[in-house]
Design a binder for these strands. Structure first.
Lengths: 230, 230
DNA sequence: CTAATAAATGAATGGCATTCATTTAGTGGT
DNA sequence: ACCACTAAATGAATGCCATTCATTTATTAG
């Protein structure tokens, strides 16, 4: 199928999109910032399942192959998105106030941002920071916050990594279905677990279960790691 | 059914799979246990990139479409694998000894198992335990361990979830490349971060960096969560 | 004995990322 | 002013992949 797709257009009041003839256009249509923005729009509209190179090209009113003049692969697009998201993480606490409060605000916003973007977590976990300026900027601010709070220099990176690991895992947790711990017909053979599930659901009432666990773990990490300060 | 599983070809020691004629064979060739075993073998040999329905069918010496008589989708295969892996997690500490030691042994082995299977983490995070008997069994044992250690019932699930979140995030961390924190040409603009990276690398010497961070975070979590006991 | 069901084959199907030949436009050097 | 090179677009493959469907054969239930 020729896929009428992107640029149909002509006279009808569509999104615009005149068909472009082959060859380099006078003004460049694409750049990394535009690709990033289009990817984010697509993700928010259709989710990560809807983020395909073809769909991205359609949003940008370009042939799919044109994207490859600006990124080497789809993975590259994900990297661009990932780095952009890092700029949304709240670092304001590291400007003043206690280390505990700064870490808490940072961790909650970091988790919230990536809870909406869990498919990027495997990407982040392996992404060399060199290629990600926003990510690097975040690490710089956080490192300085830890240093100023009195952390021994050689403990700073392990502490940040431990916190990040917890944050990434917790981001997945946010996306879990309500009934994930429903033991169903097997409940009879798991009395202790089933009782614990019932009991935590009962004591819950307000707020998401994921928030309760995150709060609990974060407090434990903050107090445990905080003890490393000189 | 013992499930001959990875069906071997007739007499010849070819890798080559006698061609079976169409129609139901007298003895069933496939079952879930065999599919699970073949998937695990494939994963260990070729990684998750090599785990395709076609490759799985080839290992089992069947046509790809035959798999769909036993599983509904590839996701289903991943679920089978995931549940099998849960049986490899070390629960022995919960038989006796201190809660701290039991949790520590459980957490390390849990992380080690899934560090080799990070592509399953998104699957687990969303998997209803009903469909996963081994997973359910693990939760039962761990829940009982927490209860016996004096945890208030309504705190047990949040505490386990917090630990699991940390474990999953840390499993990704194990797979990160050595030089992930290399700031390269940008190092000049990130003095605090770069110094922290150098310093933690220097103090490292033995063991993986991921182990240092995991140990640090796990100790913090254990001492913080342990304080919840009555 | 027969109808329903289970389990296999083999041939599509449609979606996907990616590549390649081709076209056109700007750019740097002489 | 010319020319070679490079940049940025189109459009037509390519190959991989999960999944579906019609068909065949065997077993099982009534």
């Amino acid at each position: 199928m020729p896929a009428v797709s992107a640029a149909q257009g002509r006279s009808t009041s569509n999104g615009g999109a005149q068909r472009r003839r082959a060859g380099r256009p006078s003004a460049a249509v694409l750049d990394k910032a535009g690709i990033t923005a289009a990817a984010l729009e697509l993700i928010s509209r259709k989710g990560y399942g809807g983020l395909t190179m073809a769909a991205l090209a359609k949003v940008l009113e370009v042939a799919p192959s044109a994207l490859y003049n600006h990124v080497a692969s789809k993975q590259d697009v994900l990297l661009l998105v990932e780095d952009h998201l890092m700029s949304l993480v709240d670092l304001s606490g590291f400007g003043g106030g206690s280390w505990e409060d700064a870490v808490r605000a940072w961790a909650w916003s970091y988790r919230d941002v990536f809870a909406e973007h869990t498919p990027l977590i495997p990407v982040i976990a392996v992404l060399p920071v060199t290629d990600a300026p926003q990510t690097l900027a975040m690490y710089e601010t956080v490192s300085k916050g830890f240093l100023d709070a009195g952390f021994p220099q050689e403990r700073i990176i392990p502490a940040i990594v431990a916190l990040e690991s917890f944050i990434f895992g917790s981001a997945y947790d946010v996306t879990a279905p309500e009934d994930i711990f429903d033991s169903g017909s097997m409940a009879g053979s798991t009395p202790n677990f089933s009782a614990a599930v019932r009991s935590s659901a009962a004591g819950q009432e307000r707020g998401r279960p994921a928030d309760t666990a995150f709060s609990l773990g974060l407090d434990a990490l903050i107090s445990g790691l905080g003890a490393l300060r000189k």
